[in-house]
């Protein structure tokens, strides 16, 4: 299995472990993730304005490059995935965006959304298979009580992201179970952590993250997994997480641990 791989800015700096554990695990499983040449920052937030074009270009460059290699594009960071996936949907559905972007980029062949971007978790579920994954486990998580934290960016809007049921997702729980952990569902697992609001107003993110951690703790969860560097940062900083000694780790760390490559 061979894929184009888009890392994103945070994975090369503050979230290096998210990438390292993913690449080491993929290598162990015989999955080839080839980092794209000249990838550019996705911009971290999807430009929602219908008249915003420039901020969509970097995603299209990556999508088109992967398409030219006849490879799916794999992402790891929730934010990158969200932006690139939604831009791809725009390129498929919105004639005006498609025309303007192509007019600007002047690629050899116009890009019309033919490429496919998938998140690492989707690759494991749909291409590799969780059942197959569970057979490759060398060190089971041995019944550890783990809570999946989805946050916003992988799930919503469901019609564009097509990742899972946005109100009642199951992919991360299935992933945890495949590694031998006990996945515990808790009510706040799809609630927002506050995201970038932390740069402007910490009191809002503090309240939002405390609600999430409190909900997890009430359900007997001792560790939380996420795919998003900003969610991890916000959740770890919450008073409740420190008080209850709840650890927040990347999903790839669990994977590397159970494949014995951590």
């Amino acid at each position: 299995m061979k894929y184009s791989y888009y890392p994103g800015c945070t994975l090369k700096t503050k979230a290096q472990e998210l990438e390292k554990f993913a690449l080491d695990s993929a290598n162990e499983l015989g999955i080839e993730l080839i980092e794209q040449k000249d990838w550019q920052c996705c911009g971290a937030v999807y430009p929602m304005g219908e008249d915003e074009i420039v901020t969509k270009l970097s995603s299209v460059r990556s999508l088109a490059a992967a398409k030219d290699r006849n490879e799916k594009l794999v992402t790891l960071c929730s934010a990158c995935h969200h932006v690139i996936k939604r831009v791809n949907e725009d390129m498929k559905k919105k004639v005006e965006v498609r025309e303007k972007v192509n007019n600007y980029l002047q690629l050899e062949n116009d890009y019309k959304g033919e490429g496919e971007v998938i998140h690492f978790l989707e690759m494991m579920r749909d291409d590799f298979g969780f059942e197959q994954l569970s057979k490759k486990i060398k060190k089971s998580l041995n019944g550890r009580k783990i809570g999946a934290y989805y946050g916003c960016l992988l799930l919503r809007p469901e019609k564009d992201m097509k990742f899972d049921d946005s109100e009642n997702p199951i992919i991360m729980e299935n992933f945890i179970e495949a590694l031998g952990g006990v996945a515990i569902k808790y009510p706040y697992r799809t609630e927002c952590c506050g995201g970038y609001l932390v740069t402007e107003n910490k009191s809002i993110t503090e309240e939002m993250t405390n609600n999430i951690i409190r909900s997890a703790v009430m359900n007997g969860i001792e560790e939380i997994v996420t795919a998003c560097p900003l969610c991890k940062y916000n959740l770890e900083n919450s008073h409740q997480a420190k008080k209850n000694n709840v650890s927040v780790v990347y999903f790839t760390e669990l994977l590397a641990e159970s494949l014995n490559v951590k």
Binding site: T10, T13, K14, G43, T199, L230, K232
Partner: peptide, 8 residues
Amino acid sequence: MPQQAIVS
């Protein structure tokens, strides 16, 4: 503070 927060 992750880069993602600053860029966002």
